[in-house]
C-alpha cells in the first residue's frame, strides 16, 4: 500500500508513502486512492511531502483520483516539492487543484 490516511477536523489526510508517482506506479496509486477514499470526508488533502518526482502518468493518476471522488468532494494537494510543483504549474494543473506548500498550510484552511 502506497498510502496511509487519517481523519482530521480539516478533512481526510491521505499521505503518499512513496518517492515517485510515475508510469510504473500510476495504476497502483489510482487503485490505492480509490480504496482509501471510498467513503469519507468531503475534503481530501493529499500529502505529497514524501514525493520527489512525478511524471505525466502520475499527474494523470491524481486527476483520476480527483474524478473518482465525484463532484461533491474536493481533493487538495499539499507539500509539493519544487519538482512536483513545477510539473503542476507547467501543465496548468495549478488552475484545477488548490496547492499548499505544506500540510500545515492546507489544514489551516478549513473546508474551502
Amino acid at each position: 500500500m502506497s498510502l496511509t490516511s487519517t481523519m482530521t477536523d480539516s478533512g481526510q489526510i491521505v499521505t503518499v508513502n512513496v518517492e515517485r508517482i510515475d508510469a510504473a506506479m500510476a495504476i497502483q496509486f489510482k487503485e490505492d486512492m480509490r480504496s482509501e477514499t471510498e467513503s469519507g470526508a468531503s475534503r481530501v488533502i493529499l500529502d505529497l511531502s514524501e514525493v520527489k518526482f512525478i511524471d505525466s502518468s502520475g499527474l494523470g493518476a491524481i486527476v483520476a483520483a480527483m474524478k473518482q471522488l465525484g463532484s461533491s468532494r474536493k481533493l487538495d494537494l499539499a507539500g509539493l516539492s519544487p519538482m512536483v510543483d513545477k510539473v503542476f504549474r507547467l501543465t496548468r494543473m495549478d488552475t484545477v487543484f488548490d496547492l499548499y506548500a505544506s500540510l500545515n498550510d492546507a489544514t489551516a484552511v478549513n473546508n474551502t
Binding site: 511524471d55 505525466s56 502518468s57 499527474l59 494523470g60 493518476a61 486527476v63 483520476a64 480527483m66 474524478k67 510539473v87 507547467l90 501543465t91 484545477v96
Partner: peptide, 10 residues
Amino acid sequence: LPEGGFGWFL
C-alpha cells in the same frame, strides 16, 4: 478533465 496527453507538452 484529461488524464493524459501532458507528456509531449512538458
